[in-house]
Computed example of a mutant assay.
Amino acid sequence: MSRSDQGAQLARIYEPRLLPSESQAHFEMMRDALVAELKPRCVIEEMWVGEIVHGEWEMRRLRGFKDLIVTSARGLALKNLLSIVLNASGAADIDDLAERSVTNKAVRNQVTNILRKHRMSEASIDAEAFRHCLFELGEINRRLAELSSRRDKSLQLLEDYRAGLARPRHPAEGTAVMTSGDDGD
């Protein structure tokens, strides 16, 4: 078995459990690209590469979750904006208007016109949804920073390990040994 095959084999050990919405093919493509780039040469390097693979997949997952979280908050955001511009009159009517705007084109046009009258747009809905999700997005960003730091540390450990393998193991190895009476001439 070649080293790259061994690296891919070990990286599979660190394969995260994929969620139903995630693609096994995308994971394997990312894993194989990382293994090909880093070319682990021993089991220690393979462990670091496995950690890097796992962390990169989690980062990819979390970045996708950020978009989904904001998108899922759009309904609440629209209700809030409509409450503001319609002076919170008829909360049930506002809820109905916001919900029907998702499936009914005429209602969607009506909502768009209401927002335009108040100098708002689809981007206003996105901004309000984002505002509602700031805490959750902050937590994800903290986790992304942790994972990025771990990846960078693993890459540095890999680099240091490889540099250590290139150096002589004992200080006397690779240097001329002077004997008594020899002045180096």
Rank of each mutant, 00 (worst) to 15 (best):
A106P: 03
L157R: 08
G181Y: 04
Q9H: 12
Q9S: 11
R150M: 07
R108W: 06
L158N: 04
T71W: 02
G64T: 07
D5G: 03
S154G: 10
I94M: 00
E46R: 15
I94C: 03
L10D: 05
M29L: 08
A106I: 08
A127R: 11
Y14V: 02
D126W: 10
R151K: 15
R60G: 01
E45R: 10
R143F: 10
E37S: 12
K117F: 02
L115G: 09
R142E: 13
A73K: 08
Q9W: 10
R167T: 06
L68Q: 15
L10M: 06
H170N: 12
S149N: 14
A33D: 14
L34T: 11
N87I: 04
H118K: 15
D182L: 04
I52Y: 03
E56F: 06
L38V: 08
K117R: 14
F130W: 07
R3M: 12
R12M: 05
F130Q: 08
V102K: 15
T179H: 04
M1I: 05
M120D: 08
E136S: 13
A88W: 13
E45H: 03
R116C: 00
A36I: 01
V35F: 00
N87L: 10
R63F: 00
M178F: 07
R131C: 00
S149K: 14
A123N: 09
R17V: 11
N80H: 10
R60F: 10
E56N: 12
A106N: 12
P16F: 00
L115M: 13
R12T: 09
M59N: 11
I52A: 03
R131I: 00
S101H: 05
R17P: 07
R143A: 12
L155W: 05
E22D: 12
N141Y: 01
G164F: 06
Y161K: 04
Q9V: 06
L34I: 15
R143G: 09
E28D: 15
D32F: 07
K153Y: 11
F65D: 15
L155T: 06
L115A: 08
D67W: 03
L68M: 04
R31Y: 02
E15F: 05
D182Q: 11
F130R: 07
S89E: 14
L82T: 12
D160A: 04
R142T: 14
G164V: 06
R108T: 05
A172Y: 08
L86E: 09
L82E: 02
F65V: 01
S149V: 02
R63I: 00
A91D: 12
L78I: 02
R3Q: 14
P20D: 13
L82D: 07
V102T: 10
Y161M: 04
L165D: 04
I69S: 03
F130I: 01
R143M: 13
R17A: 02
F130T: 08
Q110W: 02
E159Y: 03
A92Q: 13
